[in-house]
Design a protein around this nucleic acid. Structure first.
Lengths: 332, 332
DNA sequence: TTGAAAGCGCTAACAT
DNA sequence: ATGTTAGCGCTTTCAA
């Protein structure tokens, strides 16, 4: 910068003004400086600027994993929005490791990110109070369990997602429901589904709830096989807490000699890309991830602009049923 | 830091030595300083350190997209390796936008990342010479087309992947091959498959190559329907340049009244998670993404340690056939 | 083993 | 409209 200033016959300050696009610079001076800049191939050092201004044009995003397409879509959307605003994304994954989550949290804050976004309700849960202490804009998203009242959170109405899945099956005429869910992570979704049946006076027993230890097709397959073998009455409808699980459910149903949807209806949640290409195409409840990403990013950007922590709030985005071919009325 | 120093009755320098774990500090002094640090809740400012040392403990990773599971797995692996070494990941996606790629490139370098990893052969291609100019360790990975000799690149032997798929089908006894590929991106894979047949004296015509404009099941479905309708002879084997495409191929084959693998064998590339849960489970060629991520990261970390750009090199990782149920000998 | 001084490259505030 | 001064928080000399 000093070199540029010397070459242009001005001071560093004027160079700074030109670089930052300030209007105070006279056209001739600007031209001289710009010539010097291109001649010297100067690019500003963002770290130095960060130290001087206290702002790094960087936001941190802590997510459980990006191997799960749900999160990778959210990350991709956030990254795109940020780059439009000239911000960069510092990505940190926790992968179910609480200690790692905490490490990321502290290093990100001392790295002076301008804001912090945290997705997923994992072991970081217990460190939530820390978030308020950093004095920087923070927001939570994709927060399924117990969203804290002390922080701004943009999440999805997961209970409603379960409810919509349940109501869809109820409206088709199903009088009972078998649940295959990744518990306890997805218990909210399950209670939503149960509520839909309860509205019509049908109380579902916990005996018809089966746990898929992970949100994967294999896990869903296993749990469903167990359900099919243990239940006296053959289920007419299965609600899976996730599309990935639902895919496994459909496999299990078929390998048990039953047809989807003629014998058993299957409904999932999330609308992953494979859902529409499954056999049959999977009825599911789409989660508004992109909207969530947009709202959360907007919240943070606003917090940065106003130069203060974002006020606590809870935004629950509404999911939507996508009726496809895996659900039908129960056999007569 | 000054506060900590004052409270401990030492200078900033001593605090710095304690924080960085230098051995020159006497135990008593260290204890005093550490007490002051915890009392004050001091955490070092990484930006200031970055300005002073010229090293940010951050590496930039430019990828086409993370919506594609291939890249998201690579990113996740890289991020994990980096966090183990105390590095952070600045993630930048280009999403097929050359201008955006260039923006990322310049801002990342002026952000003084300690190293830069670039995945995927996109519009950034023309800006490759720039990479050498930054004077920081750079590596390329997942570089399918024309890996430059001037830079270190850790990639996969995509030609061999195609070859292995082709050879597998040849060994099953297939005498012709229909190709459904995302062209021109995957042309290397196609020529590999053709080479496998050529080895046995079978020259495959370009007429049996169909383009799926995107690496998606829908796209593969469309292209296959076209293939099935336009070909005089019914194909006995289809090679898809991607598992995602292969999924669509299988759909199309079935909806054309044919069975997989009895009437038509289908082979893909990549071994995406869905491949093993497809109906039938998809025979594919697994690409060693994790290995690639590890090697590339190691290369960069070494470059950082040696404080100089990484020497140009080309590492081609070997893919591996995974025989599952979608491939079988042709009908008699 | 500890302290003092200088500077990393930039910007903010003020002076001209 | 431009120049001057001071300082962001840390590390790196070098001196004690």
């Amino acid at each position: 910068m000093a070199d540029v200033a010397k070459r242009a016959g001005v001071t560093k300050q004027t160079v700074s003004n030109v670089v930052r696009g300030r209007t105070v610079v006279s056209p001739e001076t600007r031209a001289k400086v710009e010539a010097a800049i291109t001649a010297l191939g100067y690019t500003p050092n963002l770290v130095a600027r960060g130290l001087a201004t206290g702002t790094t044009m960087t936001i941190g995003f802590i997510v459980p994993t990006i191997a799960n397409p749900f999160y990778s879509e959210v990350v991709e959307e956030v990254e795109t929005l940020l780059e439009e605003q000239g911000y960069h994304l510092l990505l940190a994954t926790t992968r179910g490791d609480g200690a790692r989550a905490l490490r990321h949290l502290t290093t990100l804050s001392s790295r002076s990110v301008d804001a912090l976004l945290v997705a997923g309700d994992f072991d970081l849960n217990q460190h939530l109070p820390l978030l308020g202490d950093y004095g920087l804009p923070v927001a939570l998203c994709a927060w399924e369990i117990d969203p804290p009242a002390t922080l701004p959170v943009v999440t999805i109405d997961y209970e409603k997602a379960g409810y919509l899945a349940g109501r869809h099956l109820r409206e088709l005429g199903h009088r009972s429901l078998t649940v295959v869910a990744d518990l306890p992570a997805h218990r909210i979704r399950v209670s939503g589904a149960h509520r839909a049946f309860a509205e019509d006076g049908i109380t579902l027993s916990q005996d018809s709830v089966f746990t898929a230890p992970a949100a994967t097709p294999e896990s869903g397959y296993e749990a469903t096989m167990q359900a099919l073998n243990s239940t006296a009455e053959r289920p007419t409808a299965v609600f899976a807490s996730t599309d990935a699980i639902a895919l496994g459910v459909m496999d299990a149903v078929r390998s048990h000699g039953l047809r989807v949807p003629e014998d058993v209806s299957v409904v999932g949640i999330d609308d992953i890309p494979q859902a529409s290409h499954a056999h049959p195409p999977l009825t599911t409840v789409a989660l508004p991830k992109r909207q969530m990403a947009q709202d959360a990013t907007a919240l943070l950007l606003r917090g940065i602009a106003e130069n203060q922590p974002v006020a606590p709030s809870l935004s629950l985005l509404a999911p939507e049923v996508l009726v496809r071919a895996s659900s039908a009325p129960p056999a007569a």
